[in-house]
């Protein structure tokens, strides 16, 4: 977090909620009074492509883009995507990775192999890696869409502001638009948070 700017890169596949997660982080930073910018490259991402969303916040943010080697946190919604994007992390950065593996058609039809152990490869680079099966937690809570909130809960103790700020942003957001989902998202957040501490 040099120059007082925090850089968070959220990566995954179109449809996983990467952009929503980044939006939540941006709103939480905003609620803390930071200047915030968020950007993504997702032109054709809805068609199963890669999505990467950049969130930057601090006293004053100019460029919206995180440069390779400058990310403080990497949130990977899919194992191979976390591996693809790890060069964006600083050596002191933290990677929070969902162990989910999604093989695109070029892999499932045998043109390319899926990395045998993406988490192991990540860990071997020396960066701090936390990996867990967010999907299993979501299933246990009864809604596969909770992965998003679980991942945010998991990263919440690595932010330069209290985890509760992010939690409040998420839960209040649901309370305003989908009140039935507010409580389960609060649970999901704490479940993710607990998992990351293990």
């Amino acid at each position: 977090m040099t120059d007082g700017i925090t850089n968070i890169l959220v990566v995954g596949i179109g449809g996983q909620g990467v952009m929503t997660a980044a939006e939540m982080l941006a709103r939480a930073a905003l609620a803390q009074g930071f200047d915030v910018k968020k950007t993504e490259v997702a032109g054709m991402a809805q068609r199963g492509g890669v999505v990467s969303s950049h969130v930057r916040f601090g006293h004053k943010v100019y460029s919206p883009q995180i440069e390779p080697g400058e990310a403080d946190l990497l949130i990977g919604f899919e194992a191979a995507e976390a591996l693809r994007w790890f060069p964006y992390l600083r050596p002191t950065g933290v990677a929070m990775v969902n162990t989910l593996r999604i093989a695109p058609p070029v892999v499932s039809t045998g043109l390319y192999p899926y990395p045998a152990d993406p988490i192991g490869e990540l860990a071997a680079t020396g960066i701090e890696v936390h990996a867990f099966d967010a999907g299993a937690i979501a299933e246990a809570l009864g809604n596969s869409k909770l992965v998003n909130t679980i991942m945010l809960g998991a990263i919440s103790d690595h932010l330069p502001f209290p985890a509760e700020v992010l939690k409040t942003c998420i839960v209040e957001g649901f309370r305003a638009y989908k009140p039935k989902l507010a409580e389960v998202n609060a649970e999901a957040f704490e479940a993710g948070r607990g998992k990351a501490k293990n």
Binding site: G49, V50, R84, P87, P105, P113, P118
Partner: peptide, 16 residues
């Protein structure tokens, strides 16, 4: 800066 790249398959957009 010398940044090692991971060898990861491409994930081009595709039909649904």
């Amino acid at each position: 800066p010398n940044r090692p790249q991971a060898d990861v398959f491409p994930r081009p957009p595709t039909m649904c």
